[in-house]
Simulated scan of single mutants.
Amino acid sequence: MKRTGLFFGTFNPLHIGHLVIANHMVEFSELEEVWFVVTPRSPFKVKDSLLEDHHRFQMVYEAVADYPKLGVSDIEFKLPQPNYTIDTLTALHERHEGERTFALIMGEDNLRSFHKWKNYEAILEYYELYVYPRLGPGTIPDNLVDHPRIHRVDAPIMEISATFIRKQHKAGKNIRPLLPAAVWKYMDEMNFYR
Rank of each mutant, 00 (worst) to 15 (best):
I21A: 07
K170M: 07
E32F: 13
D74L: 03
D109Y: 12
L79F: 11
E32C: 02
F114P: 09
D142A: 15
E76C: 02
M25Q: 04
V20K: 01
P141S: 03
R176F: 03
I160F: 04
P141G: 06
T85D: 10
P13G: 02
W117C: 01
P82W: 12
T139Q: 13
R149E: 08
P177M: 13
G9I: 01
P68F: 13
A63I: 14
P177R: 05
Y186L: 13
L14F: 12
L104H: 08
V153I: 15
V153G: 00
E189A: 06
Y61A: 14
D146Q: 12
R95F: 13
E189L: 06
Y132W: 13
Y120Q: 04
H54K: 13
K69Y: 08
A181V: 09
M25I: 10
D74K: 06
G98K: 10
H93P: 00
N12E: 04
K69I: 07
E108Y: 05
T4A: 02
Y67M: 01
Y84H: 06
V153S: 00
G17I: 08
E121L: 04
R95N: 13
M59S: 03
P148S: 03
H55F: 11
A65I: 05
K118I: 13
E125S: 08
A122P: 04
Q168N: 14
A65P: 00
E32A: 07
L92R: 08
F28H: 14
W35M: 13
S49I: 07
H18G: 10
V60K: 01
N83S: 15
I157E: 12
F36H: 07
V131F: 03
S161F: 08
F102M: 05
D74N: 06
N110L: 14
F7S: 04
Y126N: 06
V26K: 08
R134W: 01
L178F: 12
I75K: 13
K116A: 05
Y61I: 00
V131K: 10
P43S: 10
P141C: 03
G107Y: 06
F44N: 13
F36N: 02
H96V: 08
H96W: 15
V60C: 09
R41T: 09
F11E: 06
F57A: 02
E52A: 07
I105Q: 05
I165S: 06
S113H: 14
G71E: 01
P133K: 02
E189R: 06
H169K: 07
P180V: 11
E76M: 03
G9N: 11
K167T: 14
A63G: 14
K45Q: 00
F77T: 11
E121K: 09
F192G: 00
N23F: 09
F8Y: 07
L31Q: 10
L178T: 04
D48I: 09
P80F: 06
F11I: 02
E30P: 05
N191T: 10
Q168M: 14
K45P: 01
E52M: 02
V34A: 04
H151I: 06
S73N: 10
A122C: 10
D74Y: 05
F44Q: 14
A91W: 09
N143E: 15
Q58Y: 13
E125Q: 15
